[in-house]
Design a protein around this nucleic acid. Structure first.
Length: 837
RNA sequence: GGCCGAGUGGCGGAAUUGGUAUACGCGUUCGACUUAAAAUCGAAUGAAGAAAUUCAUACGGGUUCAAGUCCCGUCUCGGCUACCA
């Protein structure tokens, strides 16, 4: 007998899959599969950044989940689309280029080649004809096209604003790229810088992005994070007239308009544009110093020092509810980016305002009565209650008063209902070389001209030196031939077409823009007529199952935003890009800590394969390691256990001593070419009944488990089946069933077994009739404690009286029921009798 | 501080709708094979007890014929978030 040799058989099957292009989703040269009536499944993982280090075990877990599903659905004869791509723009390649002079284009090519080779060694069922790469001009041409669509609709715009700036990477960062006041890439503290930047107006879709979360088949964790990120607040916008400066109003946002009578001062963010109008001779110097200090303060300092600071502007506003004059202050606890950048302070009912009032000795006026018996012992009560000190609204319940106040202020023209979002517009320009160029140019007056669609792509020029220049512009500014050019444009004044000298935008797009549409590119990956083909998108998309372990908010929110936008433009026939999202956990080092090069605890998946375990063991192990959505620690000993299991599968097929033989001695011809030692079910009557039960139970359990994404228990079910077959020996049908069921996990081994058995790989179907056995075991409890098990004929389950009688007849039951029986509960479904004594 | 998870043998974990707690794997022990070891195969393995049995799903209560599962409270760990008005 040949021994299980993964090295040999994996090489053999990988070569065959490559040659036969086994995993192409469509016949050559066509976009759609032949049989459109078969259900389609579009599966994808979050495409990786192909780093020089190659695949790590985390990738393997992520990709194997997709692969198991792809193979499972393929075996069920569905049309499966399982493409692959690379997210190649980004800082690592650029920093590497700055350090070594090797161009990002070249480094990316090398890395992809390595990645592709490694992916093939894992035996993934990838349709390689659809491989995409975001830094390929063929791809980013269409990223630029997407940008222009957003630009046309006014959803891509330029605005001067204070932005997070990383002084090391020399680029602005989006809010979600700032972690604890530090750059997500290099970890350096970020600063605020006033710059003109490009944005996508994601806030336009805030309401829909929020509302549609409910219906998504996504993990609750991610749904909650997205809801929090969008951060919708309902409240009111209230205008406060400035007493000392004519015709000046300060708008504030509040979620508690019911407390307006208690607003005893206003607070403005240091960056608020009205501040310069409000300062007086005496306060000017001090306020300006406070403003410039606040700008210099890093996010970390702001967080560390929660002690309230602030300064009086010297001006007063009129509280529209009370008519009282109240002072206007400036403090950095009010953020310019949220609401109106100004608040009405109600110190009696808001902790932050309370602290501020205490510190600067400002009046505190209670306007909500704490209900009796309230356990809230905070200094300022922020719950609901009856209004007091609130003029005509005294005695009203605070929850009702909110609307009454809004209506009342609205009648006077100084207030209205308002919804505010925590989410800001998406900052997309980056001062980096290695990104998708923004297809915009400027004339000498700074007017914007989009590059016409037929002139795309704007190709990234090769440069010698990749360092950003010290003006905050990317290295693209160094490509002089590329930077300026002539283009026919409509003259802004005369409206005639004229040739104009233009300068290109040197900012590139945030990498998240490139990954916001790649799922749709997969349906017609190398289409040169459109970003995605309409017929193909209609058939394949949206993505049925999307698997990842990162980007809970950013990427998964942006892709939803683009989906809604392109749906509105008529390019997509759906409004949500991903039906089911699986979010897999991380794989940690054996010590339970995160794997990292510096700690030297990294497990290299290719090493595991080369040690002799093979790809099938690696794949199966990573599915068996635990529930896919939980973190798990790598255990080298358990890898050995999975290898032993696959080895046992192999033996059942190739070791004749493991084969069931018939005492009647007749060989079966039900399986052509099967070895003489191998017997079919038919030869084994009468012991065939239990065998069929085990087999069909296994088929059902494995099928259900994969549907539920319980990959770990699917594998353990197969282990139980193999243990059973080791005891009882295997028939031809057993071996074929086992091979088919294990194929999603260990495809090479399964193919080898199926080849030997001359069998197809079509997913087996269980028959309910084998699941119902002739005799069943009924559990007998007394007072909920297990006391006996009785074996009864299956049809007797309908006969409650008989079962109760049998149960009571058990010696061990009699022992515990000698004091009499109160009642008997019989649960047919659970096959259980509970006697209450 | 706020929100959301989780806590089961020596370890990773199973228990799908409230119905036999600890499947499967690792580890450990014993046995077979072997001159021997590895590999492989077989058996045992929550704790206490000779046994019947009792006690065990973080802790304390509750609901129920029956609770790992549901409810209330406490503790511990993890994730996200953090002056968002």
């Amino acid at each position: 007998m040949d021994r299980y040799n993964p090295q040999e058989i994996e090489k053999k099957w990988q070569a065959r899959w490559e040659k036969e292009q086994t995993f192409r989703a469509a016949p050559k040269g066509k976009d759609l599969p032949k049989n459109l009536k078969t259900p389609k499944v579009f599966l994808a993982e979050m495409f990786p950044y192909p780093s020089g280090a190659g695949l790590h075990v985390g990738h393997v877990r992520n990709f194997t989940i997709v692969d198991v599903l792809a193979r499972f659905y393929t075996q069920q004869e569905m049309n499966v689309l399982r493409p692959f791509g690379y997210d190649t723009f980004g800082l690592p390649a650029e920093n590497y280029a700055i350090k070594t002079g090797i161009s990002p284009q070249e480094a990316t090519k090398t890395n992809i080649t390595n990645f592709r080779k490694q992916l093939k060694r894992l035996g993934y069922a990838i349709d390689w004809s659809r491989e995409i790469n975001t830094s390929d001009p063929e791809y980013y041409k269409w990223t630029q096209w997407c940008f222009l669509q957003l630009y046309k609709k006014g959803l891509a715009y330029r605005k001067e604003s204070y932005q997070w700036w990383c002084p090391v990477d020399q680029t602005v960062l989006a809010n979600e790229q700032v972690e604890n006041g530090c750059c997500w890439r290099c970890g350096h503290e970020v600063e605020k810088k006033k710059m003109k930047q490009w944005f996508f107006k994601i806030t336009e879709y805030a309401d829909e992005l929020l509302a549609d979360i409910d219906a998504l088949d996504w993990p609750d964790k991610i749904k909650t994070m997205q809801r929090n990120w969008i951060g919708r607040s309902e409240g009111a916008e209230i205008e406060f007239e400035v007493a000392s400066v004519a015709n000046t109003y300060i708008k504030v946002f509040t979620t508690r308009p019911d407390t307006v009578f208690g607003a005893t001062f206003l607070v403005l963010a240091p960056e608020h544009p009205a501040v310069k109008k409000l300062v007086t001779e005496e306060t000017k110097a001090e306020v300006e110093k406070y403003q410039s200090d606040a700008l210099k303060k890093s996010e970390i300092e702001r967080q560390e020092n929660k002690e309230k600071t602030g300064v009086f502007t010297g001006s007063y506003a009129i509280n529209p509810a009370t008519g009282e004059k109240i002072p206007i202050w400036v403090s950095d606890y009010v953020l310019m980016g949220y609401g109106e950048g100004a608040i009405m302070a109600v110190p009696a009912h808001d902790e932050r305002d309370y602290e501020f009032a205490e510190k600067f000795d400002l009046p505190i006026k209670e306007v909500i009565e704490k209900p009796e018996g309230s356990s809230d012992d905070e200094k300022c009560y922020h719950g609901e209650g009856k209004l007091i000190n609130s003029g005509h609204l005294d005695g009203t319940d605070s929850s009702e008063a909110r609307e009454l106040v809004i209506n009342w202020l609205s009648e006077q023209g100084v207030g209205k209902q308002k919804v505010t979002y925590r989410m800001r517009d998406w900052l997309i320009s980056r001062q980096r070389y290695w990104g998708c160029p923004i297809p915009i140019a400027y004339d000498e007056d700074g007017n914007e001209y989009p590059i016409p669609e037929d002139q795309l792509p704007v190709i990234i020029p090769e440069v010698k030196d990749y360092k950003p220049d010290n003006t905050g512009r990317s290295a693209l500014a160094k490509a002089k031939d590329w930077l300026t050019f002539e283009m026919e444009v409509k003259d802004k004044k005369t409206g005639k077409m004229v040739k104009k000298k233009l300068t290109r935008e040197t900012d590139t797009l945030d990498g998240y823009a490139c990954s916001s549409w790649y799922l749709w590119r997969y349906v017609s990956a190398h289409d040169d007529k459109a970003a995605w083909d309409q017929k193909a998108i209609k058939y394949w998309a949206p993505t049925d199952v999307y698997v990842g372990a990162d980007h809970a908010v950013a990427h998964l929110l942006y892709i939803r935003f683009w989906c809604k936008f392109f749906a509105d433009q008529g390019y997509l026939p759906f409004r949500e890009p991903v039906k089911t999202l699986l979010y897999n956990g991380y794989i940690n080092a054996p010590d339970g800590k995160k794997m990292s090069k510096s700690k030297g605890n990294v497990i290299d998946p290719l090493d595991v394969i080369d040690q002799g375990y093979g790809a099938d063991t690696l794949r199966t192990y990573e599915m068996f390691i635990g529930p896919y959505d939980q973190d798990a620690a790598w255990d080298p000993k358990s890898v050995g256990g999975v290898y032993r299991f696959l080895n046992r599968c192999w033996n059942l097929c190739f070791d004749e001593t493991m084969h069931a033989t018939s005492e009647r001695g007749s060989s079966s011809d039900t399986l052509k070419g099967a070895r003489p030692s191998l017997w079919s079910d038919e030869d084994l009557i009468p012991d065939v009944a239990d065998r069929l039960v085990q087999r069909h139970k296994t088929i059902k359990k494995v099928t259900d488990d994969i549907h539920r994404h319980n990959f770990n228990t699917a594998v353990s079910t197969l282990m139980e089946y193999v243990n059973y077959l080791y005891k009882e020996k295997a028939t031809a049908e057993d071996i074929v069933t086992l091979a088919k069921l294990i194929k999603p996990f260990a495809p090479h081994l399964a193919c080898e077994m199926l080849e030997k058995m001359e069998s197809d790989d079509i997913w087996p179907v269980w028959d309910e009739k084998y699941l119902a056995t002739e005799t069943v075991e009924v559990v007998v409890q007394v007072n909920g404690k297990l006391r006996a098990k009785i074996s009864v004929a299956a049809e007797d389950l309908e006969n409650q009286e008989k079962i109760e009688e049998l149960a009571l007849a058990e010696d061990n039951v009699k022992k515990f029921t000698s004091d009499g029986i109160k009642k008997i509960i019989f649960v047919k479904q659970a096959k259980l009798v509970n006697i209450v004594a």
